[in-house]
Design a protein around this nucleic acid. Sequence first.
DNA 1: TTGACGAAACGAAACGGCCCGTTCTATATA
DNA 2: TATATAGAACGGGCCGTTTCGTTTCGTCAA
Lengths: 200, 200
Amino acid sequence: MPMNEEKKARRSIGARRNPASAEAILDAAETVLAESGHAGFSIEAVARRARAGKPTIYRWWPSKAALLLDIYQRQKQFAYPDTGAIEEDIAAFLKGLLANWRDTASGAIFRSIVAEAQSDESAARALALYAAGRRAATGKMIERAKARGEVADDVDPAIVADLVSAFAWVHLLTGRLDAGEQEIRAAARLVMQGIAKRAS
Amino acid sequence: MPMNEEKKARRSIGARRNPASAEAILDAAETVLAESGHAGFSIEAVARRARAGKPTIYRWWPSKAALLLDIYQRQKQFAYPDTGAIEEDIAAFLKGLLANWRDTASGAIFRSIVAEAQSDESAARALALYAAGRRAATGKMIERAKARGEVADDVDPAIVADLVSAFAWVHLLTGRLDAGEQEIRAAARLVMQGIAKRAS
DNA sequence: TTGACGAAACGAAACGGCCCGTTCTATATA
DNA sequence: TATATAGAACGGGCCGTTTCGTTTCGTCAA
């Protein structure tokens, strides 16, 4: 009984995927992106680099965007700071994020995902999901500050989170990842002034 | 005397460029981008659409990014509001920008430029230039507010401008261009709280 | 416990198709 | 007559898919 009619059937969960190949492909993808940038990042280039066959890549990753997302998720997750003071949290968040994007492959990967999202539906969804997730996580900084009485209860955490990460986005997309301590502190202070509890 | 050695010589300003062709190419580029999105936006597709030859396009636009930038600049320039109250200015700016991106081709064009900037040096520079220009223009809203005594003198206009347009960026890139009146007002109020003069 | 079987993943090669950026030709225009 | 034009064609690269023969590995009978 031929499988012709169900070529594209969803792969069973226990499929025998070769972990070594997957590893090599992700390594190669990371290297290619780092060396040649978004322009040189092709499935064929990754396959060559990994000494893997193209069909192997296409078997496990449906699109270039999916591959990018996977190598992004291999990167160390960014920790959300908890210094005990909201302004410090914000400054640390911005500083850490910019440094991470500048010093590791994360920035290039993320920029490529943004670019890919213009063509690829799944990348766009993943991007929105990522943004929403970070909004939620950043929002926790605000919730903690509220618990400490540092921030008024009627401040919307989602909007503040947008505000904070938006700073980072702008720096990423316009290539200003080398923002100095002073600029970061000023941004943090500005945001903090916006959300600080109106004392007495 | 052959021109072989100077194939790429800069075209003289008075070159006899066919205005009708240029118009048709820009029109076609806009249409192709609107119909097929960033994925289908190729020089060949534009040439087909415009019934123009590829060499004609390459003669006048060095890259896809340059073409995108030109059709972007044909779009109506966004007006920076001057309502007399900084909070109103900010809300109007955000509202107008999001509406413009949502209702015209501007959003698609701009997203494509962002995508292209990952590969194309000139697009990246143009993007940074655009961002800087908008920072400066938005900063004027702050300067006017300072003149009115609405905002403290020691607030950095550039950072506030970043803050405001960053909101718009995030909405553009995550596809949330349909932000409601309420969300926009909340964002404007938040920014305004951050920059409002500490009265008394 | 061993060994053969068979399903599934694998690397390599090739495909038709699209697009790139360039070069050539022949035509139209000023 | 000089220049821009449309169009065709080029060598090259990448796309996503198919086909090939090979290797890996779980299963199960001996």
